[in-house]
Design a protein around this nucleic acid. Structure first.
Length: 120
RNA sequence: CAAGUUGGCCGGGCGGUUACGCCCUGGUUAUGCCGGGGUGAGGAAAGUCCGCGCUCCAUAGAGCACGGUGCUGGCUAACUGCCAGGCGGGGUGACCCGACGGAAUAGUGCAACAGAGAGGUAUAUUGCCGGCCUCCUUUGGGAGAGCCGGUGAGGGUGAAACGGCGUGGUAAGAGCACACCGGCAGCCCUGGCGACAGGGCUGGCCAGGCAAACCCCACCGGGAGCAAGGUCAAGCAGGAAUGAGGUACUGCUCGUACCGUUCGAGUUCCGGGUAGACUGCUUGAGGCGGAUGAUAACAUCCGUCCUAGAGAGAUAAUCGCCCAGGGAUCGGCAGCGAUCCUGGACAGAACGCGGCUUAUAGGCCGGCUUGGGCA
RNA sequence: CGGGGCGUGGCGCAGAUUGGCUAGCGUGCUACAAUGGGGUUGUAGAGGUCGUCGGUUCGAGUCCGACCGCCCCGA
């Protein structure tokens, strides 16, 4: 679980990011970003019933949160980020999830050089 | 020892590193940052098939309709649940399975195909028997196409054909009569709270199946659901009072612009209430241990414990070691041993609880049955 | 949390009304005929665990129960 202020918590924020934000695709994940004007990023995860039963969906979300934590220090700040899991995400290892996130963040231009200080 | 049957239990462990929800708490430059401690999924949390608590709404009483349940007794807050028993069926057996009220006397309906006939005190294809007729004849009788009548015993159809078997009886036969057996109904006796069981007498000879077909009978059921419901309450609109000014440039005066003085600006107050926040929210028909009562389900009493409460929704990610388990190779007659590889089922709380159903790698303990071996 | 619908040849649908003879229709598929060839047309044919498992019944696509999958609605 992420600290509360780093999470997207309102339905409107999710809708805004998905409808007005930019979008990048992969076989296992879809990434939506929308500038928020805040000094930090906020994250939301969407795992629908098509991915699996409740236990599987929870595991996918937990892995995504853990993987996100790795990349938070290297991301540009000020975005609402929604990550949508596609059905293939249920049979992909944690290492692959991390790699897919790196690829998508790279495509989105969110990765910044590592010597820049991270946002709290 | 093997096969089976049944009841109960567990459902990976330990330790690093990096993190999270909730509760308590410390520091500080205080709504932020840095800490400390506690606690944190299941036997099914699942499916949502029943039942109950709880909350709101409705509600004189009774009946009808609709839906559900359906052997008996008990348990329970209640149940389509559980326990004990009865009856029927399956199995060598332990044991398992059963929507298990009513079909003659409440009524209606259904049964394809086949078959002579399918529910009516039914039917006549073949067969059997008698008569008429024809032929033969050793005068006893025999054979035969057809017609009339008797018959339901034999054959045949079907899932199902109106009891079984024997004797008498007859032209041939038939519950036509009788004995026994089976089944049914009524009455009585014995045992049992009861379902029911055992027995006796009488009756008429038998009056079939399907109510998970309509239906009848008995019993039960008001509706909605924690997004229930409660508290606070931006914004927008409304009401009441007051009211001739108010707002911007602008800190003040003047001026200008806009809004307003019948269509009422501004200010104050009011109730309802959306977003949102808080609450409901976890101490409960509670868990564990013991005693007593009961065949048991369970009940009563005593002691002890507090054991998740989120809200885009925590309980994790990853690494190492170990323990079940699986596979391969080698050694050995075998039990087994060594090495390497592999390796963790089903599944995630969302108001709570009691059940049912379904999913589930692997393992542990006990009872019983059958078969075999040894003593 | 509550409610409703669907599942039948490759595809789209009937049959589910009192349970019964061989489960039909359109399209697609195969073969043949007609044409110089193709289309159209005609004739013949193949193709079905009726979602799964159990039960009631002599007999189940149909009745009953449990389960699986898909879709929709309301709070």
């Amino acid at each position: 679980m992420l600290p509360r202020h780093l999470r997207l918590r309102r339905r409107e924020d999710f809708e805004a990011a998905r409808q007005r934000g930019r979008r990048w695709h992969d076989r296992v994940l879809v990434l939506n970003t929308l500038p928020s004007g805040l000094s930090h990023n906020r994250f939301g995860f969407v795992v629908s019933r098509r991915v699996g039963k409740a236990a599987v969906r929870n595991q996918v979300k937990r892995r995504l949160r853990a993987a996100i934590r790795v990349w938070i220090p290297r991301l540009a700040a000020g975005y609402d980020i929604v990550i949508i899991a596609r059905p293939a995400a249920s049979d992909v290892s944690y290492q692959e999830l991390e790699a897919v996130l790196e690829k998508l963040f790279g495509l989105a231009g969110l990765l910044v050089p590592q010597n820049v200080d991270a946002v709290p």
